[in-house]
Computed example of a mutant assay.
Amino acid sequence: MAALTKFQADQKLDLQYPGTIGPKTLAALGIAEPVAESLTPWIALAQRKMGLHEVRDNKALKDFLKSDGHALGDPAKLPWCGDFVETCIAVSLPREPMIDNRYWALNWPKFGVEVSKASPVMGAAER
Rank of each mutant, 00 (worst) to 15 (best):
G22L: 00
R95V: 14
E33V: 08
R48Y: 06
A90M: 08
D68K: 12
E54L: 09
P23T: 13
L13S: 06
Y103C: 09
C81E: 15
V115T: 12
S116M: 10
S67N: 04
N101P: 07
D57M: 00
C88Y: 04
E33D: 06
V91I: 12
L15N: 01
R127I: 15
A3M: 08
F111C: 04
R127D: 13
L15T: 01
L45V: 06
G51E: 03
G123E: 09
F111W: 14
Q8D: 06
A76W: 02
I89W: 11
I31E: 03
T20P: 02
V113Y: 12
C88E: 02
W108D: 01
L4G: 02
D57A: 02
L65I: 01
D57F: 00
K62R: 11
M122I: 15
W42G: 08
S116I: 09
T25W: 03
P109W: 10
L13C: 02
F7G: 01
T40S: 11
W80E: 04
P94D: 09
E37R: 13
L106I: 14
V115D: 09
P41H: 02
V35R: 02
A32M: 04
E86T: 15
Y17Q: 14
L52Y: 08
L78Q: 10
I31M: 05
D100Q: 05
D10Y: 05
T87L: 01
D100P: 01
E54Q: 13
L15G: 01
A125F: 14
E114D: 15
D83S: 11
A105F: 13
S67A: 12
D63V: 13
D10I: 06
K6S: 05
W80R: 04
T20I: 06
Q47N: 14
H53V: 12
P97I: 07
V85P: 01
P41S: 01
A27F: 05
S67E: 05
A44L: 00
A118Q: 13
L29T: 01
T25M: 05
G69A: 07
E126L: 15
P120L: 05
L45E: 14
N58W: 12
L65N: 00
H53A: 13
A90T: 13
G123V: 11
R95Y: 12
A124E: 13
L65M: 03
L39N: 00
W80H: 08
L61N: 00
T25F: 04
P34H: 08
W104M: 15
D14R: 13
P109Y: 08
D83H: 09
K6V: 02
A46G: 10
A9F: 00
G22T: 08
P94L: 05
H70A: 13
E114H: 12
L15S: 00
M122V: 15
A36C: 04
G69I: 11
